[in-house]
Design a protein around this nucleic acid. Sequence first.
DNA 1: ACAAAAGTGTTTTACCTACACCCATGG
DNA 2: CCATGGGTGTAGGTAAAACACTTTTGT
Lengths: 235, 235
Amino acid sequence: MRKKYSVGTKMKVAVDCIVFGFDGNRLKILLIKRGFQPEKGKWSLMGGFVNKDESAEDAAKRVLKKLTGLDGIYLEQFHTFTRPDRDPVQRTISIGYFALIDINKYKDSLHDNFKAHWFPIKEFPSLIFDHNEMVMMAQNRLQYKAASHSILFELLPEKFTIPMLQTLFEDVFNTVFDKGNFSRKMLSTNLLIKLKEKDKSNSKKGAFYYKLDRKHYQQNLHKILKLVPNPNDLL
Amino acid sequence: MRKKYSVGTKMKVAVDCIVFGFDGNRLKILLIKRGFQPEKGKWSLMGGFVNKDESAEDAAKRVLKKLTGLDGIYLEQFHTFTRPDRDPVQRTISIGYFALIDINKYKDSLHDNFKAHWFPIKEFPSLIFDHNEMVMMAQNRLQYKAASHSILFELLPEKFTIPMLQTLFEDVFNTVFDKGNFSRKMLSTNLLIKLKEKDKSNSKKGAFYYKLDRKHYQQNLHKILKLVPNPNDLL
DNA sequence: ACAAAAGTGTTTTACCTACACCCATGG
DNA sequence: CCATGGGTGTAGGTAAAACACTTTTGT
């Protein structure tokens, strides 16, 4: 073993996850009731420390697995928070990740360990430390990314309708779209496969279910979705 | 002082900076010859450890000041690198920043301490650790950001011509633009103020110098620049 | 006068928006 | 049979791409 660097201070390194979900109506985030001091009992993001032989991404996956029971979650690092006083206990930097999950796959049974709860992104409680700031930034990054990448499908169940998609987009971008144009553009991506079945929960006529063309989706993850009117107004 | 967290491992936290510059012809990055072990004498990014009572951004500013002598540099955090084995000496995570500087303000006099050198982004030497990956990611982020934000002006001197701007954009986006369309779009942003003087170094006719309308620029940092053909192909 | 870069004009095409309209069906 | 959301058709405007053309001036 070589000699260590003599300069620099060692610090704890944490990950914090902003978990997004969509219940068909509103974009939500998953928060937990903190189970230890300080700030025990307050709402916070789900997080954890990065272990000795683990990358931050692995740590985030581990944390998410513990919270949701799910593997293979869409995960993206968006910012690292380093204010010296951000954690009052000990100098800790936190690497922020946002995750997109299908809210239906989420197991309520795992809930109780963490006293987790889904809050609409528009009205969640005040969080500990700098977690409010983290949520804001995660939301911006979600917008930014989703403006040109078709990542929002990660939030939807296998079968979904176009009006449902539109509701999701409208909540993410905090705006409204013309339904005709939205539907046409969405279809023109060739990312959707029409199913026979209809969802009649929102209208008499019913809206056709679609599923994602996974093949096409994988090939075009990097590609266009000119769905959002002014992507340049973001971030 | 409260009790510390009993879980988690402490690690060294570093910052590494990708410093971009533009010499009128090509986009370049500033690299240094590493002055200590391991990998002494190899090319690397400029970096440093984050100190006890310092944020990562402050650390990056400090490092850049030491390297370039400059304050108020455009600086943006883009990714944190955490592979457990990325630094062979000791577990170290590194927060990556990219910086945009006016290459003319850079003082060569400070050079020698670090054996720093500008390399074209298209042909720089192999770097230590994961620094190659860092440069790639920084470049992507620069593209992504510059596609819709007018940050590339940070790379230019006070006075510049439109053909010079075009060269810069072409090198950043690794493409070519129609000069007519480019010039029209650039002018239509109302970000430029035409000067009396011409630059005749590239043609007999000469190209008018422009300067940035700083007021308009500050107000519209967040705003549009529809200069790049397919911003969606990026990242 | 001519070469070469700077800058302007113009045509074509693509697509985005807005909005009118038709469709399906449960009550 | 009508109210309600789902979905299609279409006219008009805007802007971007392509490229021809004019300008300027050192040699």
